[in-house]
């Protein structure tokens, strides 16, 4: 499994994905200039823009690497040669997942360093009355990476059932959008405003809330930007949620992949 992860990681580097990230990361250079347009919160705006850019880059990576990695191997028939070796299908899949997840973590580490520099520079232009919460900034980036690793797992699950490139890509994007909105929907149906909504719709929304991944929990942007206190219990619960949910998705993916007929 480790060797598959290593090969996957090497493959991602070979595909020059880092060059793509570098191009997108050039946008970081403009953040201090844009943030200086703010009337009252230059530092806060620089954090907000940096975190948004990180999320956007990670979303692209999770969707395209997660959605295409397994599919590409099968399309190029690499999977056949690898699976001819004494390696279990589940190990092969988990190895590939670990390779992509590791690449995401490396990218996050790099982008976190760039963000810290950008925020440090921007806070020098117009210091905020409240000091920058560097530890929250790190937590926000780290939890963002967990969110997108979970999304990679979802993309792998789609890849195991699909013979086409489109289902993993569009399916993952759809899950990301819905998973980012389920908490809002769940909160809404429990307000007096939703009293006229039919019980069936409420039931469906509640069902989806429990079944689909809840990405809102991983969003610590406001805490990092404004230094709003983070609940330690919340962080632990979210981390536990990540471990269990990702494990379930990967388990399902390995079961489907083990039964899949490879042609």
């Amino acid at each position: 499994m480790l060797s598959v992860a290593r090969v996957t990681l090497k493959g991602v580097f070979r595909d020059r994905v880092f060059q793509g990230i570098f191009m997108a990361a050039l946008l970081f250079l403009f953040i201090p200039s844009v943030a200086s347009l703010s009337m009252r919160q230059v530092t806060e705006l620089s954090i907000s823009l940096s975190l948004s850019l990180i999320s956007f880059i990670l979303l692209l990576l999770a969707v395209f690497l997660g959605g295409a990695s397994l599919w590409k191997d099968m399309e190029r028939r690499y999977s056949f040669s690898v699976l001819a070796l004494p390696i279990k299908r589940s190990d092969y899949l988990l190895g590939k997942f670990c390779g992509v997840a590791l690449f995401l973590l490396l990218t996050v580490l790099l982008l976190w360093a760039v963000t810290s520099l950008v925020v440090f520079f921007a806070s020098g232009i117009y210091p905020s009355p409240r000091p920058v919460a560097w530890h929250y900034l790190f937590l926000a980036v780290f939890y963002d990476s967990l969110k997108y690793i979970l999304l990679v797992a979802v993309a792998f699950l789609f890849s195991t059932v699909s013979t086409s490139f489109f289902l993993p890509i569009f399916g993952t994007i759809a899950i990301f959008l819905v998973g980012s909105a389920t908490q809002e929907a769940y909160d809404f149906i429990h307000t007096p405003l939703a009293k006229d909504i039919p019980a069936v719709v409420k039931g469906a929304a509640t069902g989806l809330y429990y079944i689909l991944p809840n990405f809102t929990a991983f969003d610590l942007k406001l805490n990092a930007i404004y230094g709003v206190q983070v609940s330690g219990q919340g962080l632990l619960l979210t981390f536990g949620y990540f471990l269990v949910y990702t494990a379930i998705v990967l388990f399902l993916a390995t079961v489907v992949f083990s039964r899949r007929e490879l042609k």
Binding site: S52, L177, S180, A181, E184, F218, D219
Partner: peptide
């Protein structure tokens, strides 16, 4: 907007 902005709500507000 909160439903469709995913994790970019703060960016949208900015």
């Amino acid at each position: 907007l909160k439903f469709v902005a995913a994790d970019q709500k703060v960016f949208l507000a900015d």
